[in-house]
Structures are given as structure tokens and as C-alpha cells.
Nucleic acid binder design. Structure first.
Length: 426
RNA sequence: GGAGACGUGGCCGAGAGGUCGAAGGCACUCCCCUGCUAAGGGAGCAUUCGGGCAUAAACCUGAAUCGAGGGUUCGAAUCCCUCCGUCUCCGCCA
């Protein structure tokens, strides 16, 4: 959510920057709502003040055993206008909130302007894609060839866009997650979190998935209780730890890491990445979350992105870092780096991590604050990034480590998690 | 799942229709006194938002908030309803 003061004072500047991400801010509607709010709110608060002081007088008079009927008649005269104003103000503020809640974050100045993902800008590359002296397979052919990846069984059990692994491949998948957690907790200073996979709508609102992106979520309806949502990323439960909290200044930065399955209904993605486990309804991810003081968030963003890159380097997976252009950024983000890993099976770099600085966009929704040196509250800044997507890392390990006979050489960094095993074979 | 109790500021805790945004205590901040490891006195100390106000801070002023949302009332922390959560006992369970 954007700062309402910013909208009131600089709406044209905000609109211009939002336009670079392809969002048209309806300034006319805003101005109209704002004008009505201002007069209505001032008037309503004046009436409330009158009512409060008159009611106090009634109390005083009655306390002294005197007649209060004149004052009560005065209050009654206010009542009708006050009631209708309160109702209208409530509706208006609701309308106002709904309007503001669907405005995306403002991109930072350093974000390149663009119209599509084609305008994302590469920052750097690491590693060199391997030259194969045989015809490469993608992870589907490799996994099914090993008899350890079974999309047919998953489709029977659940439907399309699910996967099932067996044996060594399932173990490798688990090892990858363990490895990531260990690196982030032991080398990068993160605290490991275990969190709920089902969350309430307030949490989804806090990180920005609701109200705009409900169609992308799996929702659990319960007849006698609030609906719950399956988390699309650990970002949601982990970031919401600080919702409605006022943190002591020395509690920051919070650096948290959490491994969870992620559930996405992927509405609108039909026809894209239908083959294999690139785009699934359920996948595992190790997520990095940082909660920092406002002035530290850009530094933290570089650091967090670097933490994700280290995983790829330890796994010897060639990748590149791109900064997303204005048009390709997520709703809540002020700046996003994507890490794209080289996939020989697709002969392309594919997204494996997305690291974003949300500035105060999420914390304003969540009312997540800290105390500054003066003891005043201020909104924290939140960041997160995949460190990394486990399923896609498995895909990358398989495709980059494949051998002519269909076996897969395991990166050295993972072998200790697999009892020293160096290769996966049928 | 059944029965009961409860939810008040950073923490503990009083408050049971009216002068309550809320006694008292702890913690914290500042000042004074005293002086040497501990104590005394005074003051301050919730959040969000509106207006003054054209920007930021400060200040003044108003509104809202006592788990959340509705209701009754001139007036609700207090009464009623729904929901959420916590605790105790029983049942069930990994």
C-alpha cells in the first residue's frame, strides 16, 4: 500500500512513475474521493466532538441530580445528521481503502523502464554453460528415464501440474533443501523458521496477495469459520510474523529462512511450461526474508540477492542476474532482481529466484513498525527472495549434471547430504 | 468434538453505563538530591488518523481504538450478539 500522504501531495508524480509499469492511476477518482472524504470527515468529527461534550454534560447533570432534558434534546437534534454522516464516511473510507489497496508499488529510480520482460536488464553472469558431446535431454526425459520422476502417477492422484518423485531423486530433492537451509543459517546468519502452510486473509492482505490476486491462490472454504489459503510462498507466513508489531530498534535486522511447499493455482498460465516441473501447483522453496530499518533496505537487498547467488555458485550452476524492468515487477515490489539458471534442456536461462525490496509497501499494510532512536514509531522495510526454488534447482542439477548414459552427476556440495553418493543412476 | 473461564498500554494489573485513553505497579527517558554500586524526590511515557498546514519536525486541537466486527444507549472497556484467540477439565489423536 502506498503512503496516503504521498498520494495526496504528489499524485501526478506517483501517477507518472506508475505509468512506467503499465499501471494507469485513476487520479480523477482519487481526487473525487479525497475531496469528499475531507469535507465529510471534518464535518463528522465536529459532530462527534459536539455529541461527546454534550453527553459528558448529561453525565455531569445527572450526577448532580439535575434535569438534563434540554441537553438531551440538543444531542437528539445532532443525531440524525451524525448517523447519516458516519454511515456515509464508513462507506467512503472503505471505497477509498479498496482503491488504494489495488495500486501497485512505485518502482525505485534505479529500475529500468520497459514494456515487457524483454526489457529486463542483465547485471552479470556467473559460470559457463557446459559443452555436451552428446544430445542433451531435459529433466523430464532424464527423470522418467531413471524411473524416478512420474508425472503419470501424479496426474492420476491429483491432476495436471503435479509431480511425483521416487528413490534417489526424491532424496536429492530433500538434500537440496537441507543444503540451502544449512548455508543460509550457518554462513549467512539467518534464523530458521517453521511456519503454517495455511494462512488467513489478513496475512494474505499484508503481503499483497489479496485482494487483487485471489485467483492465483488455493482457498479452503470452511462452513463455520474463516476461509484459509494455502501459502503461495513462505514469504506470506514469515513476513506476517511482524504484522501489527512494534519492534524495538535493536531487534532489527530480522533475517529469517524458511523451507515450505508453495501452492499456486497459476490461473492464466495455461499453455505455458506445461511440460515438466517448471510450473507446478505445488513446489518446494527455501525463502529468505529480511525485516530492516528503512534506510538499510537497499543494502539488504543487495546482500540478500547475493545470498541466493551463493547457492547457485556452490552448486556450480551457471546463472545470470537481471534487474526486472518496470513492467515485469510484481505488484508489491519497488525493485526486483531475478536470478536465472542455465537449463541445457531448454537452452535458456530460466528464473530460479526472485529477490525483491518492498520498502514500506507491505509493512504499511501490515502495520509493522519499529522504534527509531527518538522512540518514534516508523514503518519497517521488508524484503524477500527465493534462496532458492527447490524444484527448479533440482531441474537445473539434473540437466546440467547429466551424462551420456542418462545418469546424473551430483554437485560436490550436495554429496555429504547423500551419504557421499556422486551420481544418480537407474 | 463437549463443558467452563478469560482477552485492558512495552509488561503486570484495577476499572462492572457518565468527569476513563484508562488507577496502581514494573520497565524506560529526562531533571534534582545524594554520593559509590545502591537509594530518595519530581516530571514524562499507547497507537492510528483528521484539522490547524502549503513541505518536514515540533506544537495545538479533534476523532477513533480496551481481541475483531455488529447491536442497545444521549453516552459502552463496562450491557447484548457473532467471530477470533488463550487457559482449565473431559473426549479423541501423531
Amino acid at each position: 500500500m502506498l503512503d496516503i500522504q504521498l498520494l495526496r501531495n504528489n499524485i501526478d508524480a506517483v501517477a507518472a512513475r506508475l505509468a512506467t509499469r503499465g499501471y494507469t492511476l485513476d487520479t480523477a477518482t482519487f481526487q473525487k474521493l479525497e475531496a469528499e472524504r475531507k469535507t465529510l470527515q471534518t464535518r463528522t468529527q465536529d459532530l462527534q466532538a459536539s455529541r461527546n461534550s454534550l453527553s459528558k454534560q448529561i453525565g455531569l447533570l445527572k450526577g448532580k441530580g439535575e434535569d438534563a432534558s434540554t441537553v438531551m434534546a440538543e444531542v437528539a437534534a445532532l443525531k440524525q445528521e451524525l448517523d447519516s454522516n458516519e454511515v456515509r464516511l464508513g462507506e467512503l473510507l472503505k471505497e477509498f481503502d479498496a482503491f488504494v489497496a489495488t495500486i501497485p508499488n512505485v518502482p525505485q529510480e534505479s529500475v529500468p523502464a520497459g514494456n515487457s520482460e524483454a526489457d529486463n536488464v542483465e547485471i552479470h553472469r556467473w559460470g559457463t554453460p557446459r559443452n555436451f558431446d552428446f544430445t542433451v535431454k531435459d529433466h523430464v526425459d532424464l527423470g522418467e528415464g531413471l524411473g524416478q520422476l512420474d508425472f503419470g502417477a501424479a496426474a492420476k492422484i491429483s491432476g495436471a501440474r503435479f509431480s511425483l518423485m521416487r528413490g534417489q531423486l526424491a532424496r536429492l530433492h530433500r538434500a537440496i533443501a537441507q543444503f540451502m537451509l544449512d548455508v543460509h543459517t550457518q554462513e549467512h546468519g539467518y534464523t530458521e523458521i517453521y511456519a503454517p502452510y495455511l494462512v488467513n486473509s489478513a496475512s494474505m492482505f499484508g503481503t499483497g496477495q489479496l485482494p487483487k490476486f485471489e485467483a492465483d491462490l488455493f482457498k479452503i472454504l470452511r462452513p463455520e469459520a474463516e476461509p484459509l489459503y494455502l501459502i503461495p510462498t513462505a514469504e506470506v507466513p514469515v513476513t506476517n510474523i511482524v504484522r501489527d508489531e512494534i519492534l524495538a530498534g535493536d531487534a532489527l535486522p530480522l533475517k529469517l529462512v524458511c523451507h515450505t511447499p508453495c501452492f499456486r493455482s497459476e490461473a492464466g498460465s495455461y499453455g505455458k511450461d506445461t511440460r515438466g516441473m517448471i510450473r507446478q501447483h505445488q513446489f518446494d522453496k527455501v525463502e529468505l526474508v529480511q525485516v530492516v530499518a528503512a534506510e538499510k533496505s537497499n543494502e539488504a537487498h543487495e546482500q540478500l540477492t547475493r545470498h541466493a547467488e551463493v547457492i547457485l555458485e556452490k552448486l556450480e550452476l551457471p546463472y545470470r542476474r537481471v534487474v526486472l524492468c518496470t513492467a515485469d515487477m510484481g505488484f508489491s515490489s519497488a525493485k526486483t532482481y531475478d536470478l536465472e539458471v542455465w537449463l541445457p534442456g531448454q537452452n535458456a536461462y530460466r528464473e530460479i529466484s526472485s529477490c525483491s525490496n518492498f520498502e514500506a509497501f507491505q509493512s504499511r499494510r501490515m502495520q509493522a513498525r519499529c522504534r527509531n532512536e527518538k522512540g518514534k514509531t516508523e514503518l519497517v522495510h521488508t524484503l524477500n527472495g527465493s534462496g532458492l526454488a527447490v524444484g527448479r534447482t533440482l531441474v537445473a542439477v539434473m540437466e546440467n549434471g547429466q551424462n551420456a548414459d542418462g545418469s546424473i552427476t551430483i554437485p560436490a556440495a550436495l554429496r555429504s547430504y547423500l551419504g557421499g553418493q556422486e551420481r544418480i543412476s537407474a
